[in-house]
Computed example of a mutant assay.
Amino acid sequence: MLASLVGFLGDFDRAEEAAQEAFALAAQRWPEAGTPSNPGAWLTTTARNRAIDRIRRERTLAEKIHLLPATEAVMDEFDETVIKDERLELIFTCCHPALALDGQVALTLRALGGLQTADIARAFLVSEETMKRRLTRAKTKIKATGIPFAVPDAHRLPERLDAVLAVIYLIYNEGYSGRIDLGAEAISLGRVLAELMPDEPDVHGLLALMMIHHARRQARFSNDGEDLVLLEDQDRSLWDLDQISAGRAVLDRAIGLGGRGAYVVQAAIASLQTREQIDWPQVAELYRRLAELTGSLVVELNRAVAVAQAGDPAKALQAVDRLDLDGYLYFHSTRGELLRRLGRDAEARAAYLRALELAATTPERRFLTGRLEQL
């Protein structure tokens, strides 16, 4: 719906306002009048009409006349485009190369994933205020430069691929932290993207990564979602083995296409971690390769975890202590675990307490509280 409105109005803020008005009106009318036979068409048409009314009230109709249809539109009448999924269409629309990459990703997450500014800031490891400024800059540039809200031609899709992959990946990450429905949504987008760009190895790499991780979702939490369960403690009978197998097949496709990028490497790591006997030295080596590709401190942190799992927590702690990730929950929880393994309980307690301060979800808080109680 938002994708349609953005394309129709050419204005991001107007599209959001119109969508909100339509949903508010539906909340008032539908309980008494009943749900329309085509709710999507009703909402979209209502939002468009509300937007037109607002434009008329603001006396800008002359400037916007080319945007107004001769008759009311319904969902079934929308023009076909090279992109069949409107959610994915919105991603490509927002991921315009004239915008900074972080602005593209943040703006699309705000519109498509329903994520609040604080959620996006957490995904980027920045403050909420910093993310607000990024979003404002992106919207301002769109208005100032007249960036068109239109689907690019098929031959121009690859130049937006990095941002689109980043958006889908971050949407999935939000789902992976507990919002399972959002994780499934990201996988759905990944499948559509793989059909759209079948020869792009990173597309298949990302899809494989999400599928393999998502296959373990039922085992990641216990006690009705209240408790977080680490990989080594998960009940493997709860894993979706068919999806893991399907994810590995998608990974093979990515590798067969010559994929050596970050998403392909991450998918390979995820695949290794579902083996009966995990080869932690190999996982650590793949994380080293991934760190070279991304320059990410979080990847270095994950590499340290693999080193510890391979039997060297002291070396892992040395690597962790070189990282500047004070505002990152898992930096402190990892330090706490390594210090605990090394018998340095007082320091481990301090690290877990700092992690607890940063915990954003109930399972995270319960897990850290449990670790503190074990010391």
Results as ranks from 00 to 15, higher is better:
Leu2Ser: 02
Ala3Asp: 10
Ser4Ala: 10
Val6Phe: 00
Glu17Thr: 10
Glu21Asn: 07
Leu25Asn: 05
Ala27Glu: 09
Thr35Lys: 13
Asn49Ala: 01
Ile52Gly: 01
Ile52Val: 15
Thr60Tyr: 04
Leu61Met: 12
Ala70Val: 10
Glu72Pro: 02
Leu90Ile: 03
Phe92Lys: 01
Thr93His: 07
Cys94Arg: 07
Pro97His: 10
Pro97Gly: 10
Gly103Trp: 03
Val105Trp: 08
Leu107Met: 09
Ala111Asp: 06
Ala121Ile: 01
Met131Glu: 14
Thr136Asn: 13
Ala138Glu: 04
Lys139Asn: 08
Ile142Lys: 08
Lys143Asn: 07
Ile147Pro: 01
Pro148Leu: 07
Pro148Gly: 06
Ala150Leu: 11
Leu157Ile: 04
Glu159Tyr: 09
Glu159Thr: 13
Arg160Val: 02
Leu161Ala: 07
Ala166Asp: 14
Tyr169Gly: 08
Ile180Glu: 13
Ile187Gly: 14
Ser188Thr: 09
Val192Leu: 06
Leu207Ser: 13
Met211Ser: 08
His213Gly: 04
Arg217Tyr: 12
Arg220Pro: 02
Ser222Val: 11
Asp224Cys: 12
Gly225Arg: 07
Asp242Trp: 13
Ala249Gly: 10
Ala249Pro: 01
Asp252Ser: 12
Leu257Cys: 03
Ala262Arg: 15
Val264Pro: 02
Gln266Leu: 14
Gln273Thr: 13
Trp280Phe: 12
Trp280Pro: 01
Arg288Gly: 12
Arg289Tyr: 06
Val298Gly: 09
Ala310Ser: 15
Leu317Asn: 03
Ala319Thr: 10
Asp321Trp: 04
Leu323Tyr: 14
Gly327Met: 06
Arg335Glu: 09
Asp345Lys: 04
Ala348Asn: 09
Arg354Asn: 11
Thr362Asn: 14
Arg371Thr: 01
Gln374Cys: 07
